[in-house]
Amino acid sequence: MTSLWNGDYLFLLENLIVKDFKIRYRNMSLGVFWSLLNPLILMGVLTFVFTKVMPNAVPNFPLFVLCGLVPFNFFTVAWNNGTISIANNAGLIKRIPVPREIVPIATVLSTTIHLGIQIVLLLILTLAFGRGINVHWFWLPLLWALEVMFVCGLVLATSALDVYLRDMRYIVESACTVLFWLVPIFYTLDIVPREYVTVYEFNPLAALILGLRRILYEGVSPNGDAGLVYKLAFTSTVTFVAGLAIFSRLKHKFFDYL
């Protein structure tokens, strides 16, 4: 089924992103400040727990934990909002022949605006903790782009499945809760048993956090001995292609099921 829609993709994408962003903040008195509040509060709580209640040996713990919280926060918000995006825009999907892929992708991209704000916070904190700018910062845009691509792939798959099985959104929510513990946000990879380390490195979210820490916190190349960036690029590409394939298989019957 070829779509009859032959409009301006970029213009549409821009409008959908701006719409999501405006709607979320228009009626909030604190506005975009909310983007900063969530990671800052969690950073404070985790720092309290892991330096006062259960002290550990990681120095500059707030920076260490924020390197994990910023990508994780983006991941959960984008994945959850993206998953329900098709069902939530049923009116649009059933009435206007826009290319369906653009709806979940715009939802993820509108979340990148918050990500941008949080990245600024992360970089300021990096400098505040006396970690200077180094040459490895050039890797940062690529790492973030790979994460966005990975989340787009996931969201394409789960948003399409959510049309048929509305339980999908709860599965995604639960998966995010589980991932908070299975991704090295508040612990280092060193304490993970050896046999599991490869699994961590092939998990794009964990790989991203490890890469960020190497760049910002340790000031070394994100690749390490394990070729971390290549693994991240590989899994993100595979996820994106698979998500696109699942979506285009399922999209033809959206009209019947919404």
């Binding site: 409009g7 301006d8 213009f11 549409l12 821009e14 409008n15 206007i96 826009v98």
Partner: peptide, 8 residues
């Protein structure tokens, strides 16, 4: 307008 296929 963008949904209906208008360009910028």
């Amino acid at each position: 307008a963008s949904l209906l296929g208008f360009s910028r």
